[in-house]
Write a protein that binds this DNA or RNA. Structure first.
Lengths: 346, 346
DNA sequence: ACGTTATCAGAAAGCGCTTTCAGAAACCGC
DNA sequence: GCGGTTTCTGAAAGCGCTTTCTGATAACGT
């Protein structure tokens, strides 16, 4: 009767230890397996912990041992399939290692990226991973370094997806430039000479690298890209739709449209269709990323494949590798052109 | 010179306080704004904190104040657009409230759901949110309750997306049953009488509710669903593809296929196409969820719309509302049929 | 001018754990 | 059988903060 309504209080290590008739030190040792403990005591502690439903307080553990099981992940936009796929790879890598993942989404605002680094520092994250699209801006870079440097000096680990100009950290680098170039060559091989491009914000290295690679490869083939056939839009499905609509309104002179990301390509496909154009009969369309859904579009989308989940696993591996930061390392991924039915000879 | 290489040590509250010439207590009060402090001291503390780049240790804060800024989210599968969309809503709700989100993905294994609850308890999460598809299994329910109950008694908050039979917690409930029924009626109205269904694991309430609602509505109209036209597959794109392929091999006798989720419908669409069937001319196809991509398929998919992001925000609101758990509450969402071009009269 | 109340700052306890440190007990060889 | 190891356990310090509690100082009324 009484025992049944006994307040469970807070079952702390102290309670377990008392119950087992040992000191908290011994109980801690048993529970963590740090040191041999006489079998009899071991059993008593284990039994007590189990019986009382003991759950250690991770804050106390972290504070006392100055270490944590948590990695922080800052993601450009979790609701975008590209970033979600990478985050999913990070998630998998984390659970393999028994780590917990604190996930923050900046919803496309680079300044929040910096704020979150600070927050994750406060949380004593063992590593901070940035899943971004790169951002080139002096003030931003300075502020980010000001957050990252003390963290690194304090033993924190940092790794980043996508190219950043001045951040001295481990990097997972999608082959944006080479991929853009390879795509251009593939499209040239199909016979296209007139291109239009739907880009995202130029301040993102992801955008400028892809566009740069694409344009260079065209130039090398003696084909140039009319400035009025390059339209900038938001980095989203609707951004792609709007950019493509704008292009169509102004008069599309291209036989092939390159959307700088698959997500934008999805919007572009809708815009083309709404405008009565058939893909690829009237115009070819290509994207970049190979997010899972694009093979199920009709027509399936030609794109540049990136192993997104693998990149997520790699960014974790890079951050956690020993010894830390011999010198910031770069791991390159992807860049293979996947030709599908959305492109055809003009 | 010397000052430049001075070890930054760890900048703790103590260091800031000493530097400002006040006690740690005062520094704490200033930084948290808990109590009025003389302006002069205030300024000194703030200046010192800023100068030294002070970042509070969240573990110490949590330990001392017995409260945390972290909510734990356990997600069935982060790489599935349905769950990702809900998680994104949760994310938004978290950042609005200044909370941090610890995200775990069970990768479709219900037993890991229980393990993660325990882990998040250890992390002293202020709330635990389960984004699942429901699971009906006595042993599982018992084990889950055994984790949840002590957590709730200790002041923890819990809320769940999807119906669970015995869990006494706040629930965000998609209108699966009503939605399934409404979809059936809409398809009947189009003139269909012969249906096939691609389902997921029956142990998931999401599956059984949708299927139950669908079948009941058909029965009420005097139409029955041949058992051999119901095929169970994994809850994924490939599961949908395989289930649909199996159905086609065995001989499809239906004029309309209902896939229990949009994700499975995407796979089904691919299977139908690979089999040379046109949608909706040869067979109509409907899904459930209205994940963002399905309006961009061709044909756009008929489905039952659920406000996924909103549901994510709601599950957070439910968990955090005051006072806690007057009695577990249920918030219902969605269930509107969205007719698109993937369905047509037979 | 005196007692009374309101403000503000510091000392110190304590959150729940880990980890030296040191002592007790058991072991060894010769 | 005794010094010297080797094991094992407990006492206690301390991780970095918050929060009483207490004392000092200022402000107030009559």
């Amino acid at each position: 009767m009484v025992s049944e309504r006994a307040a469970p209080a807070h079952v702390t290590l102290e309670v377990v230890a008392r119950y087992a008739g040992v000191s908290p030190a011994t109980a801690s040792r048993v529970l963590n397996g740090t040191t041999r403990v006489r079998d009899e005591l071991r059993e008593r502690v284990l039994a007590a912990a189990d019986l009382l439903g003991y759950i250690p307080n991770a804050h106390a553990q972290a504070l006392a041992s100055a270490s944590s099981q948590v990695v922080g992940v800052i993601c450009h936009d979790v609701s975008d399939p590209y970033f979600a796929a990478i985050a999913s790879g990070v998630m998998r890598a984390a659970s393999e290692r028994g780590l917990l993942m604190m996930l923050a989404s900046t919803f496309r605002d680079p300044s929040r990226e910096i704020a979150y680094v600070s927050t994750l520092r406060a949380q004593q994250a063992r590593a901070i991973l940035l899943i971004s699209s790169g951002f080139q801006d002096r003030a931003w870079e300075r502020a980010m370094s000001a957050e990252l440097d003390p963290y690194l000096r304090g033993g924190g680990r940092v790794a980043v997806v996508s190219r950043h100009r001045t951040l001295r950290v481990d990097t997972v680098l999608p082959e944006n430039r080479a991929g853009g170039a390879a795509l251009a060559r593939a499209l040239l091989d199909l016979g296209h000479r007139d291109f239009a491009v739907l880009t995202g914000p130029r301040a993102l290295t992801t955008v400028s690298d892809r566009l740069g690679g694409f344009r260079d490869a065209l130039a090398r083939a003696g084909v140039d890209l009319a400035p009025d056939q390059i339209v900038e839009g938001a980095f989203t499905r609707d951004g792609g739709y709007d950019a493509c609509s704008g292009l169509l309104q102004r008069g599309l002179r291209a036989t092939c449209v390159f959307a700088i990301t698959d997500v934008m390509a999805i919007g572009a496909l809708a815009a083309l269709r709404d405008h009565g154009l058939r893909v690829p009969e009237d115009v070819s369309l290509a994207g970049f990323d190979d997010i899972p859904i694009v093979r199920d579009l009709s027509p399936p989308l030609t794109t540049v494949a990136l192993p997104l989940a693998e990149m997520g696993e790699a960014v974790m591996a890079l951050a956690l590798r020993e010894p830390p930061h011999r010198r910031s390392r770069v791991a390159r991924f992807g860049g293979e052109v996947v030709l599908r039915a959305s492109t055809a000879p003009p």
